[in-house]
Simulated scan of single mutants.
Amino acid sequence: MQDLARVRVCSDPHFQWELVLSLHQLQPGSTPGASPADVAQWRADTLAALSGQSLGLRVHRHLLPLAPASSYFPDFLTPYEGMYGFEVGLDAVLSTPRGRIGSELHRLTTRSGAPSWGAELAHGRLSALHLLGDTMRAYFNSALVPLWPAITDRIATERTRLAAVHATRGVHTMLANLFPAAIWHPRDRVLETPYPIKHSVHLDGRGLTLIPSWFCSGSPVAFADTDLPPLLVYPIDHTPAPGPVPDALSKLIGGTRAAILATVTFGTPTTAILRRTGISASQLSRHAAVLRDNGLITEARHAGRTFYTRTPLGDTVTSPSTSPLRSSRASRSRGAGRC
Rank of each mutant, 00 (worst) to 15 (best):
M1F: 13
R6D: 12
V7Y: 07
R8Q: 12
D12M: 14
S22F: 02
S22H: 01
H24P: 10
Q25K: 03
Q25T: 10
T31W: 06
A37V: 15
D38R: 05
A40R: 00
R43Q: 11
A44F: 05
T46Q: 10
L47F: 02
L57C: 00
H62T: 00
L63N: 05
P68Q: 01
A69R: 06
F76L: 12
T78Y: 00
T78K: 04
M83Q: 14
Y84G: 01
G85E: 03
G85A: 07
F86T: 07
V88S: 02
G89Y: 03
L90S: 09
A92V: 14
L94R: 01
T96D: 04
T96I: 13
R98W: 02
I101L: 11
H106F: 11
T110P: 01
T110K: 06
G113F: 00
L129E: 02
L129R: 08
L129H: 04
L132M: 06
G133H: 00
G133D: 04
D134G: 02
Y139F: 15
S142N: 01
L144V: 09
T152P: 04
I155F: 04
A156N: 04
T157Q: 14
L162C: 04
V165R: 00
A167Q: 13
A167Y: 06
H172P: 03
A176F: 00
N177Y: 01
P180W: 05
A181K: 09
A181Y: 01
A181N: 09
A182L: 10
W184V: 15
L191C: 10
T193C: 15
P196T: 08
I197T: 15
K198R: 09
S200D: 12
R206T: 11
L210M: 06
S213T: 08
V221F: 07
F223T: 15
T226S: 11
T226G: 05
L228Q: 11
L231Y: 01
Y234I: 15
P242G: 03
S250T: 15
G255N: 07
I260N: 01
I260C: 05
L261V: 08
T265S: 08
P269H: 03
T271N: 06
G278P: 08
S282Q: 13
S285C: 08
A289G: 11
L291I: 13
D293H: 12
N294T: 15
G295E: 11
I297Q: 06
R301D: 05
T306P: 05
Y308E: 03
G314H: 07
V317D: 03
P320M: 06
S323R: 10
S328T: 10
R332E: 13
S333Q: 12
R334S: 14
R334T: 15
R338Q: 14
